[in-house]
């Protein structure tokens, strides 16, 4: 991810970060991105998430 894209991304989500804070934030986000990538893994598109929508029957 380029520096320009990272700045754009930060602006896009409405965060206002001081210029000298940006490198530190970018490093943290890079770690988070790597963690997210690990979580993704190879899965079947049919695999269900753990959280389920629940509807209680009429009482």
């Amino acid at each position: 991810m380029s520096d320009v894209s990272f700045e754009a991304r930060v602006r896009a989500v409405g965060l206002r970060v001081a210029a000298d804070e940006l490198p530190k934030l970018q490093a943290i986000v890079a770690d988070l991105d790597r963690a997210a990538q690990t979580v993704r893994g190879q899965r079947s598109y049919a695999e269900e998430p753990l959280s389920a929508f629940r509807l209680k029957p009429v009482t």
Binding site: M1, A8, R9, R11, A12
Partner: peptide, 13 residues
């Protein structure tokens, strides 16, 4: 979001 920012989000995805 500006068009540049919008493009950046899609690129990153």
């Amino acid at each position: 979001m500006t068009k540049e920012e919008f493009g950046a989000v899609l690129d990153r995805a």
